[in-house]
Design a protein around this nucleic acid. Structure first.
Length: 280
DNA sequence: CCACGACCTAA
DNA sequence: TAGGTCGTG
């Protein structure tokens, strides 16, 4: 077991792994476990100390974005009373740097589903095509590589309870397997071009693309708008009128919150239950 | 650009 | 009914 001292680095592990951005973390005996890459990670936070097993320190810092100047970012997005309250309540919530391929498939699986439903599909895919890894007498399955999924028939993938997303997953797998540099190419592009490129994949619309750009490509201008965020934007920021188009709402958010609008989205999402319905 | 229904499945 | 996308008007 290794330790990492946070000192003055604001971080809330529990909130970060359970807020709905990543889907594989589970808590057992006081530790959080998840298959990350080809290993199982085990992490616990005790005050200003992180205890961990699995990653190197460098991998740990990178994955949880501990090198990102969070307080500076939060100051920058702190532009109104509601986001201010969200920051007060969730300070330490960080955007995880996920693997692009796993993130892409995860959010393709996220359409018309809640968090348990998404998690279930990813677990099915991993159990069917990933590698079995044991840790502390528990069994985990790594997320399958694109090459592995590209070799599968659509009907086989559908057995993972992914429903109509089967063809989307298979097409994405073939695309990624044919061009292993796809993620690097997207990473180099500015936000809008990267989004256009992602949206050429079937099953990837503006919302899924924004999620992947924010959670895997460090494009912090990305502001994913789901039904929760749309409701908050409409009732709390735009006078409760009719629905805005996705692009207009996103443009408003970037104007209002600035270049780190994606962080604002996460913090607003973090307090969605408290303000849902109120003011509708 | 906006409205609409279909799409799989599980809770 | 659900954290959308796609095809059609």
């Amino acid at each position: 077991m290794q330790t990492f001292s946070l000192e003055d680095i604001p971080f809330q592990l529990d909130l970060t792994v359970s807020c709905g951005q990543a889907f594989r973390w589970q808590k057992q005996n006081g530790f959080w476990y998840a298959p990350v890459g080809d290993k199982v990670w085990k992490v616990r936070q005790e005050g200003e100390q992180l205890q961990y097993e699995g990653p190197t320190e460098e991998e740990l810092v990178r994955y949880f974005g501990l090198d990102v100047p969070l307080n500076t970012i939060l100051d920058e997005i702190d532009t109104d009373p509601l986001i201010h309250a969200a920051i007060d309540q969730c300070r330490g919530l960080r955007i995880i740097r996920q693997d692009p391929w796993e993130c892409l498939i995860s959010y393709i699986c996220a359409t018309c589903a809640n968090i348990p439903g998404i998690t279930m599909r990813i677990e099915h895919l991993s159990k069917s095509y990933g590698r079995r890894v044991e840790a502390d007498a528990a069994v985990f399955y790594t997320f399958p590589k694109a090459e592995r999924l590209a070799a599968e028939e659509i009907c086989s993938v559908r057995a993972c309870k992914v429903g109509y997303r089967d063809t989307y997953i298979c097409t994405a797998a073939k695309t990624a397997a044919e061009n292993p540099r796809w993620a690097d190419e997207i990473r180099r592009l500015p936000y809008l071009s990267a989004k256009e490129r992602l949206m050429t994949l079937p099953g990837v619309g503006p919302k899924v693309a924004d999620c992947v750009l924010l959670f895997a490509f460090e494009k912090y201008e990305a502001f994913p708008i789901d039904v929760w965020i749309e409701r908050i934007l409409r009732t709390k920021y735009l006078g409760g009128a009719q629905k805005l188009s996705y692009n207009k709402a996103g443009t408003f958010a970037r104007d209002h919150f600035g270049q780190y609008a994606g962080y604002a989205q996460e913090y607003l999402f973090g307090i969605r239950e408290e303000i849902a319905g109120k003011g509708e």
